[in-house]
């Protein structure tokens, strides 16, 4: 496939062309640093009030103060726990159920329309119900993240399993494989890379529900800190919190990608 592309050295802008690691880093840096510079420049112009847009330096100082005196690590810890617990709980149910939806048509008919229906319900609107059903303890925050993540995850898992080429399944059948053997030795290993990607993407979803979850009677956590800062118009702290969540997300995302490359080298071969 790539052979025809290599007749001449492809330029940077070839459609789906290759990009060296050096170029990749360069472009990524430009993409990340430019907004920062724009932000800085905008503040330096002095047109906007501090409350509207704090300077990067103010956000950094606020971040350091948060870290040293306002128990930032405790906030990060508890938020990390809530996100991970809600996401892991989703995975615990979504992986087997999604596998069955993607494998057996009756299970698909039974569950998929229901899941499609529920996933459009806004997670925020479940807060009062969760408070009534689950209470206002840690479990309530985990429950909100679960609700926000699970219904997306189960449908994505089902789709990953359905994407396994029929020929792979039928080949196993004509080699005498039983249903259980096909699930264990064809469907699962074949869908595994896609499933890890789904877990990575849905962990991102889980993080986006953190602030919503910490609306529920929280007194710690990054989302809670952002909400509180909002009440006191501490724009710099809002910025610090949001950026921190973004960075943690980026980190776990990269971790998953690294894991993916390590676990499935065959899926990363060029051509």
């Amino acid at each position: 496939m790539s052979r025809s592309r290599q007749t001449a050295r492809p330029g940077l802008w070839a459609i789906r062309g290759p990009l060296s690691a050096r170029h990749y880093t360069g472009f990524a840096m430009i993409g990340l640093v430019t907004p920062l510079l724009l932000w800085w420049g905008l503040v330096e112009l002095g047109w906007l009030s501090k409350v509207f847009l704090p300077s990067p330096l103010a956000v950094w100082t606020r971040f350091l103060r948060w870290l040293t005196t306002d128990r930032l690590m405790a906030d990060v810890g508890i938020s990390l726990y809530r996100v991970m617990a809600g996401w892991a709980l989703s995975a615990l149910f979504a992986l087997p159920l999604g596998l069955f939806i993607g494998t057996f048509r009756p299970v698909q008919a039974l569950l998929e329309p229901l899941m499609e229906f529920v996933r459009y319900m806004p997670a925020v609107a479940f807060i009062p119900l969760v408070m009534i059903w689950v209470g206002i303890e840690e479990s309530a925050k985990v429950a909100i993240i679960f609700i926000g993540t699970f219904f997306q995850m189960i449908l994505m898992v089902a789709e990953d399993v359905r994407r396994v080429p029929t020929a792979q399944i039928e080949a196993a059948q004509t080699m005498g494989a039983t249903r259980m053997e096909i699930i264990e030795q064809v469907l699962l290993p074949s869908a595994k890379p896609a499933l890890v990607d789904t877990l990575r993407i849905t962990l991102g979803f889980a993080w986006t529900y953190l602030v919503v979850a910490e609306l529920v009677a929280a007194n710690s956590g990054l989302g809670y800190a952002i909400l509180k800062a909002q009440r006191f118009l501490q724009t710099d702290k809002i910025f610090a919190g949001i950026i921190l969540i973004g960075l943690i997300g980026l980190l776990t995302d990269q971790l998953f990608r690294w894991l993916h490359r390590k676990a499935f080298p065959w899926a990363h071969l060029k051509h």
Binding site: P165, E170, A171, T174, G176, V186, S190, K192, A267
Partner: peptide, 19 residues
């Protein structure tokens, strides 16, 4: 009455296990 190991099939595409 169904597929069996006595009748193996070779397909045109995508039947190998890439992992």
């Amino acid at each position: 009455e169904g597929p069996g190991a006595d009748r193996a099939m070779v397909f045109q595409h995508y039947s190998l296990y890439p992992w």
